[in-house]
């Protein structure tokens, strides 16, 4: 009986949803704690999207386990468009390193929103003043320089790429999320970490050191930070964030979400708040985003294999 009623309700759902989607608030799952990078990007996004979709967009922070707890929850949510999911590139790396069984294929794309370049950042208590002295020291003491990272996620992949390109070896210490990493790096308990240009203020105050940015060209905000490419380390790395919906969400609902997302991304107010997050607005529609994700997935699979982190 229970099953019957439940099945009936599920069968009815898409029809009901089609009728007047959305007729109640939409939950946006951010798989990290509030105040983290991902949250900082979707916080200003939510109220703007609300304007375009006509219902409140409420952020639910479901943090934990390298972001995979939120991914799991988003995947298991009813595919009715009332739950959407703020994802970034970690979904590939946590899948291939075996941290989680959820992959991007468990979701439908809505749109790509932003891209944040990574910066190799050091503690003020380290002796190195530039990449050259860091490299020399790293070659002299392989496996001794400590890097704080969310294991198996993007902040682990980025330094691992540098290791490979420069032929050095780091030692990894688990610090999940940027905030605890900042605590540890300011206190000198770890030497290096992956950060981004939002930490500009601390660098100018002498509390942190930037060694190199992983972009093709120097950033206009901080032109004195060299790119890793200039330094002879061929690494370009950024973290891309976009919106996804659980697999099976009806096409019409997805189209509405995608239209609202596109309109939000193009808002000048959004560009303004992304500038504060040292992040580029990077829009892709549903198809482009899906194609890009596939490409990115191949890239990450190979990366995980090459770096010796692959479990698949």
């Amino acid at each position: 009986m229970k099953k019957l009623v439940a099945g009936f309700a599920v069968a009815l759902l898409p029809v009901a949803a089609l009728a007047q989607f959305p007729d109640r608030p939409i939950k946006l799952i951010v798989p990290w704690a509030a105040g983290g990078d991902t949250d900082n990007i979707f916080r200003p996004f939510a109220p703007l999207m609300q304007k375009h979709i006509g219902q409140p967009v409420v952020i639910a922070n479901v943090g934990g386990a390298s972001g995979t707890k939120g991914a799991k929850e988003a995947k298991d949510s009813p595919p009715d468009g009332y739950t959407i999911y703020g994802m970034h590139d970690y979904i590939h790396s946590t899948y291939y390193t075996g941290v989680s069984d959820v992959n991007y294929t468990d979701f439908e794309t809505v749109c790509l929103v932003s891209s944040t370049p990574s910066v190799l950042t050091g503690s003020p208590k380290t002796p190195w003043n530039d990449w050259k002295s860091l490299l020399a020291d790293a070659k002299a003491r392989p496996g001794q320089i400590s890097v704080g990272a969310t294991l198996g996620s993007t902040s682990h992949f980025f330094p691992a790429l540098i290791e490979k390109a420069a032929g050095i070896k780091f030692k990894y210490v688990s610090y999940e999320g940027l905030a605890p990493r900042m605590n540890a790096i300011l206190g000198g308990h770890i030497d290096l970490t992956d950060a981004n240009l939002t930490q500009k203020g601390k660098v100018e105050a002498g509390q942190l050191k930037f060694f190199g940015i992983a972009t093709e060209k120097r950033n206009a905000e901080m032109p004195n930070v060299p790119t890793l490419k200039e330094l002879g380390v061929d690494v370009v790395y950024d973290v891309n964030r976009g919106l996804m919906a659980p697999k099976g969400t009806p096409e019409a609902v997805l189209a509405k979400l995608a239209a609202a997302c596109a309109a939000t991304v193009k808002e000048p107010a959004f560009a303004e708040s992304m500038k504060k997050q040292a992040t580029d607005v990077r829009y892709m529609d549903r198809k482009q985003y899906a194609a890009w994700l596939k490409q990115n997935d191949d890239l990450n699979r190979n990366l995980a294999k090459e770096l010796g982190l692959s479990k698949r």
């Binding site: 704690a33 105040g35 905030a179 900042m182």
Partner: peptide, 11 residues
């Protein structure tokens, strides 16, 4: 504090 994403502790 945690819900609002504020890290309590020395910083």
């Amino acid at each position: 504090l945690t819900i609002h994403g504020i890290q309590s502790g020395p910083l």
